[in-house]
Design a protein around this nucleic acid. Structure first.
Length: 404
RNA sequence: CGGGGUGUGGCGCAGUUGGCUAGCGCGCGUCGUUUGGGACGAUGAGGUCGUGGGUUCGAGUCCCACCACCCCGACCA
């Protein structure tokens, strides 16, 4: 992609409404654009990162054996009244009316829809277990949106749902999901802690949050340095020592980057989603649900990976792999751009006629992992510099390709 | 929703006790000089001052209402 054609304009001035680091940097680097409170456009740069995160999540979900599909956003009131959540869900639903005056809720989560789907198709223990997931826009009527992409009212969420004959099978799958989640955060370049949490209006008997440690986090979590146990202060209010090994607990700030629930039979019971077991007896289907907010995860990565000059994207989710900067050497740089592209490298090529300083400052802001400079100074070589580092080295194109 | 705050060109801001042509920096256009860390000079373009009422000879400035956005609380991926 030639930067002269990229739909992006970076800002020198900090927009005054941005308070959190990720909000500031994503705005300044032009990854996102705000339309209303808690409602954002993902601009091309932001969209590329978002897609990469989605794909990491997709791979991990697929390797669990889960199948991707998509459910509607418009959800009829009747389903919500079956579980009582038309009135009780918090944050409240965004409600719309059709032309006949019939009310529908915009989906904030899809337990009702999926339970309705599966109760009409699952009959026997032979149909179980299985799992389905979607990556889809969700709508939450939050009291207040905060921190840029950290809490918004419309966002893309990956929601996975699993269905089992008994608690034991659910527990086994739940455990596999925890590992998949850890993989996702690790692959996105952030460190996660799994904490015991409260389940809020989703319900269920057991749930865990995945917290990314960051100073700007809104949650206080207790972490045991010895055995790795962790809990949300919401639940473990007065806890001083680790419940597992009695070590003194530390308090840290975290961002909730995922939440998983053992729903057991609460939805299948209310909505009569049963199966027939080996003995011919009807039983409620055991369920689990598992969510990750994609945009929030994107912002969380920025929260934990940046410096004074801008974002530092991990290679796995960077909008481009390399940022090729031409300093008045577009003839040479054009060729390198073509060769890199031919080699399958995602290149953002700064072909613009502006000062070197401006190009470097923007490159740092945007945060692509590797910067390549072509100038008079570099002669027949290419200057190679990883984003977070000071030192650059002069390499041939072949050497550059090996480094990527 | 309770509390606090802010609305003036794309972004950041100034605008005195109301006073006539609403300014500045960044960004943008054109020309020239520049080019290894957000260059410089010249010259331009761009604003019904959030919206609607009111007070006044006169409102960006005062009053009322509304709207939008931000922050703290609460809740969440």
């Amino acid at each position: 992609m030639k930067q002269s054609k990229l739909f992006a304009k970076t800002l020198k001035n900090l927009p005054k409404d941005a308070v959190t680091i990720s909000h500031q940097l994503l705005l300044r680097a032009d990854f996102i654009d705000q339309l209303a409170a808690g409602v954002y456009t993902l601009l091309p740069l932001g969209f590329r990162v978002h897609k990469k995160i989605e794909n990491i999540i997709r791979e991990e979900m697929n390797s669990l054996g889960a199948q991707e599909f998509i459910m509607p956003t418009l959800i009829p009131k009747s389903l919500w009244t079956e579980t009582g959540r038309w009135k009780t869900i918090d944050p409240p639903l965004f409600v719309v009316k059709d032309r006949h005056g019939k009310e529908l809720g915009l989906g904030p989560t899809h337990e009702e829809v999926i339970t309705d789907l599966i109760r009409r198709r699952i009959n026997s223990y032979k149909d179980l277990p299985f799992s389905l997931y979607q990556i889809q826009n969700k709508f939450r009527n939050e009291m207040r949106a905060t921190g840029g992409l950290l809490r918004v009212r419309e966002f893309v969420m990956k929601d996975l749902y699993s269905f089992h004959t008994d608690a034991k099978d659910l527990a086994a799958f739940y455990k596999k999901v925890t590992q998949a989640y850890k993989n996702i955060y690790q692959r996105c370049g952030v460190e996660s802690v799994m904490v015991e949490a409260s389940s809020g209006s989703i319900g269920g008997n057991e749930c865990h949050e995945f917290m990314v440690i960051a100073d700007s986090g809104e949650d206080n979590i207790l972490v045991c340095r010895e055995c790795g146990w962790a809990g949300n202060v919401e639940v473990f209010d007065k806890q001083k020592d680790c419940p597992e090994c009695k070590t003194n607990l530390e308090t840290k700030k975290g961002i909730e980057a995922g939440h998983i629930f053992k729903l057991d039979d609460i939805y299948s019971h209310k909505m009569k989603a049963n199966f027939v077991d080996q003995k011919g007896k009807a039983k409620p289907i055991m369920m689990g649900c598992y969510g990750i907010g994609v945009g929030r995860l994107m912002a969380t990565v920025v929260e934990s990976s940046n410096d004074k000059t801008g974002i530092i994207w991990p290679t796995s989710i960077a909008p481009f792999q390399v940022h090729l900067v031409s300093l008045k050497e577009n003839l040479k740089a054009d060729k390198i751009y073509q060769q890199l592209t031919k080699a399958g490298v995602e290149v953002l090529y700064d072909d613009r006629d502006i000062s070197a300083g401006a190009k470097f400052a923007e490159a740092d802001l945007i945060g692509i992992p590797y910067r390549l400079v072509v100038s008079q100074k570099t002669q027949n070589k290419i200057e190679f510099k990883p984003r977070g580092e000071k030192k650059a080295e002069l390499l041939s194109l072949e050497q550059v390709l090996k480094k990527l």
